[in-house]
Design a protein around this nucleic acid. Structure first.
Lengths: 345, 345
DNA sequence: ACAAATTCTGGTAACGGTTTCATACGCCGC
DNA sequence: GCGGCGTATGAAACCGTTACCAGAATTTGT
């Protein structure tokens, strides 16, 4: 049973010391002649340094941890894609560990990453209140942090967030140009910063156009759920058409789809009678008819940036304290259209 | 700058040797008195063995790799959940590396896992044709394999698959009991084993009930895509109602939703005029109205089983060659109902 | 032409665990 | 009372890589 070739064997074949082989690999001093000779031997023997040994020697883990909530899994693919891209591109081949927090809150895995595995960095994707304690624990352990989160109230680590306010303003412009003047907003939980920022952006955008968002047309649902959209639709149906909003902005797609579905079942035309805008661009947004106009977060870019931040923090030994803001992309589909010129009969 | 406590420090405080501390931790010989003393010191110093060092010493990587295609990301959360569960439960705390294959096929990451990191095992989630070469590479490198895949033609590793045929039969029973006799099937690509097996199950189930699936009512689409569902819907609309199928089974939810959407837009009632069944239970299946009757794969269980298999293979040093079959769960929602008693006017 | 800086190279010591080996100590059975 | 066996412990070797240091070879500067 042949053992795997190690650096010593390469050294022997190339008639140099282990140190020299290591230097050739990692780019230290070495004469052109030696470099060539060693490279040839490496190729011939098919030698590859063993990552675990290298990490051990370097005193690092060679991996980042990714933490995210179960419920926010819609984005996981995109975030992973961005991370993957960044790590392979930089040729600092690190392994990405990923965790999906279970319904029952259980931090043991993450803590073991920090304490036992001593990961080189942690990426928190959209951390909620429950993850705060984890963020604190990580900070205490001096692990580099990247937070993909809507606020910057975290005291350490890099914060990457989408520009919700800007998106809100874009929606305002879009709807204004379609002629809408009576516009409503259905938010998520009051404490959700995403929801708040989206609302503020929309409000400011409308204000700039001299359109007022009536307080009666601003509601916050206790949770992001299609049922909330449905409930809001029922409320909408009861209003007199002449006073009902001609466009409704909902703080996420799930609610928006619940809203549309219910109206649709009642024969309300979208966007004929009312225009609908969501947030997030979940896959289902295209499957519906009409396709949902929504705003997409650049999750892929954020994942990549999270890695880049961690990598530089790793190299420079100083935990970067910075905030990066990512524009959101308004995806106009068929659920928004010109405002109805007169109330339906 | 205080160094992290290592095993030597614990040994010193407990007045024993490093070996003894190691044995206390890993459960070797040690007197009760020593055990207690060491445990106390460990607790006092807050010592935790460094995973990387341990793995290095043990000559293993301490992680599994998870490979899946980008397009099949709908399940990633569930699979991850299952893996997570299994690994933390067994207390063999391993880190899960995950990869999403990019559109442009790039195997470098996976190969680096095998060659450089020398992962202890690989989980392939629903590998397609392109991943075959990776599976082969992994086999050559003697890495333990678990394949979540619909076929068992792979020559090595454990294969975990859903019982598509059984699910097909269940659908047959379900539709039969609702009174459907003219039933159609729209499959995915001809070479998709999932699609084939689902079709065969349905056909056999109907045959057992003495119902014939007309060849003209069996079609295979070139891809799993809502547009294919739409195309099929247009075909359906052109048929005379008296001869059109009263129930349509589509090989995945995406197609099913495209189908429903198109019919719905044309005023066809579901399930009043036609019942619809999909496969996969994607999140959007509940967002639609009517909710889509579909079949769910036990992805969570399969993820967990994949880990368990790898773990036993790791312990017993012999790559397990086995096939595990998982039942699928028929989720009855509102898209299936009694067959129309007479052709619509 | 000689000192100083730079480039190159090999020997050796880490890194922090586990494992092997040797030794010592009971305890049992004869 | 002596061989054998299971238990308990410590010293030292080992895993594969990089880092450090010392010294040799080469280039650079004056």
């Amino acid at each position: 049973m042949a053992r795997r070739t190690d650096i010593a064997e390469v050294a022997k074949h190339a008639r140099v010391s282990k140190s020299t082989v290591s230097r050739v690999i990692n780019g230290g001093y070495a004469s052109a002649e030696v470099k060539a000779r060693v490279a040839k031997v490496i190729a011939k023997l098919g030698y590859t340094p063993w990552t675990t040994a290298r990490n051990f020697s370097l005193g690092r883990a060679g991996c980042f941890g990714l933490v995210m909530e179960d419920s926010q899994s819609e984005w996981i693919t995109q975030i992973l894609g961005g991370i993957e891209e960044e790590l392979t591109a930089k040729h600092i081949s690190l392994l990405v560990g990923s965790l999906v927090l279970k319904g029952t809150y259980d931090a043991t895995t993450v803590l073991s990453w920090v304490r036992e595995r001593r990961v080189d960095g942690l990426i928190f994707a959209r951390p909620g209140r429950r993850e705060r304690s984890l963020v604190d624990a990580a900070r205490k352990a001096k692990v580099a942090l990247s937070l993909i989160a809507p606020d910057e109230s975290f005291k350490s680590g890099a914060v990457l967030r989408s520009n919700n306010a800007e998106a809100g303003r874009e929606i305002a412009d879009h709807l204004y140009e379609l002629g809408h003047r009576r516009i409503a907003f259905l938010g998520g939980p009051k404490e959700s910063l995403d929801s708040q920022q989206r609302f503020e952006g929309l409000e400011n955008g409308l204000k700039a156009r001299k359109v007022k968002l009536l307080a009666s047309n601003v509601t916050f649902a206790p949770r992001y759920h299609p049922e909330e959209g449905k409930a809001y639709a029922e409320k909408w149906l009861k209003m007199a058409r002449s006073r009902a909003p001609t466009a409704v902005v909902l703080a996420n797609d799930t609610m928006a789809l619940g809203f549309m579905r219910t109206l649709h079942a009642q024969g309300v035309g979208i966007p004929r009678d009312v225009s609908v805008v969501g947030f997030d661009d979940i896959p289902a947004a295209t499957l519906f008819w009409p396709g949902l106009t929504t705003v997409r977060q650049q999750m892929r870019a954020m994942g990549a940036a999270a890695c880049r931040t961690l990598l530089t923090a790793l190299l420079e030994e100083q935990p970067e304290r910075s905030t990066l803001e990512f524009p959101m992309d308004l995806i106009v589909r068929q659920s928004t259209g010109p405002a109805p010129t007169r109330p339906a009969p």
